[in-house]
Amino acid sequence: MTAQSGARRKWLDRYGSRLVQVAFVAAILLLWHLATTRWGVNKILLPSPLSVWQQFVDVIRKGEFLADLQITLMELAVAFVVATVSGTVVGYVISRSPYLIKVFEPLFAGIYSIPIILFLPLYVLFFGLGPASKIALGITISFFPVVLSTIAGFGNVDRVLVTAAKSMGASDWQLFRHVLVPAALPVVLSGLRMGFTIALLSIIGSETIASLAGLGHRIVNLAENMDMARMFAYIVFVIIIAVFLNTAVSALDARGKRQR
């Protein structure tokens, strides 16, 4: 193999998959464009990419999105923090006892597999149409992946590491801080990431069903007014926010898992 073709292969390895991803998105945009210009899809149902772009620029320039974005992010932040704290504390306590693990792990795993969003009407009855019901639902839904991964992380620490630390005289606190936490961290972080993603989904989702404010609410509102181009502009905006947040959380996750 020549040096040149070797370099080319490296380039392909590094950028090839990116290229396919970009091409995929471009193809969808092209199909969308063709659907609205050539194939006669009703503009009221599907506005053209260009008009969506114009609306998007307008939404950003006027800063009109700010109030809704703030509400959605606030709901997300509160729900995620509460679920993280309660999930890790409860998970850690359960992980300390084989008996508690035997009782609660299957129970939580079972609840986790239920589509909790079905209970949204109940949450609205209890907490109203405002942010409180979104926060409560977000907490409930993201608690389970956090608690389950915390149980798995702290419950499966390699025994020999614990024994070794104790034989060298580690105190309970040192054992926790220097052995249990670093050993459990990668698994717990995966759970936090999962919890974050589904909190975001359920909060925006429930905003579209029953709410007074937030990005999800705004989108449904525009749809009801048949303002489709602007609605699509908001959808694009939400996608960008979601991708940005998930990338940030994944980066933190990867950082915590580095070097092992």
């Binding site: 020999v160 590491l161 060298m168 040192q174 220097h178 670093p182 050993a183 070097q259």
Partner: peptide, 27 residues
Amino acid sequence: IAFIFQENALFPWSTIHENMILGMSFQ
């Protein structure tokens, strides 16, 4: 008394040097 086990008793998230420092801090 110090123990040496069959395998994998080094903390995998720490370097060899950090492993030793940690052991001594425990002791």
